[in-house]
């Protein structure tokens, strides 16, 4: 099986949410067949490293295999959160797209988002 490197954005989608100085990022592959591969490659450590420059201290990944989704909860990633941050995006709602810039190795035939089911 030939593997190619793609940004997560090519094969998955994500949404960011906030509560105080903690952010959460969901991550869902478009194709459920990629769920085990993402589980292997998109680790808590890699996601924490992606936000190290923001001072993130901890990342916990919750797996929801029944709906082929992951939830990453990242502590201290919002530089104080919406009421404390000097960032234009105090809520951190754009951070889902930083996660989607992370690269993964996927089979070439699964490297594009499939059309929606309906």
């Amino acid at each position: 099986m030939e593997l190619i490197e793609v940004p997560l954005h090519a094969v998955a989608h994500s949404r960011a949410g906030d509560k105080g100085n903690r952010g959460n990022l969901s991550l869902m592959p478009y194709d459920p067949a990629l769920y085990p591969l993402l589980a292997e490659q998109v680790t808590e450590a890699r996601v924490l490293a992606l936000f190290a420059h923001r001072g993130a201290t901890r990342c916990v990944r919750y797996d929801l295999p029944l709906i082929h989704a992951f939830n990453f909860v990242i502590d201290d990633v919002l530089e104080g959160g919406v009421n404390g941050s000097l960032n234009l995006d105090g809520h951190g709602k754009s951070l889902s797209f930083r996660l989607l810039s992370l690269t993964v190795q996927v089979p070439a035939d699964l490297s594009r988002p499939p059309p929606p089911a309906c």
């Binding site: 949410g17 959460n24 969901s26």
Partner: peptide, 14 residues
């Protein structure tokens, strides 16, 4: 669709 529902189901959830 499934994609829009999943995104909102996990929104601001820990």
């Amino acid at each position: 669709d499934l994609r829009s529902i999943k995104e909102q189901l996990l929104y601001e959830l820990h």
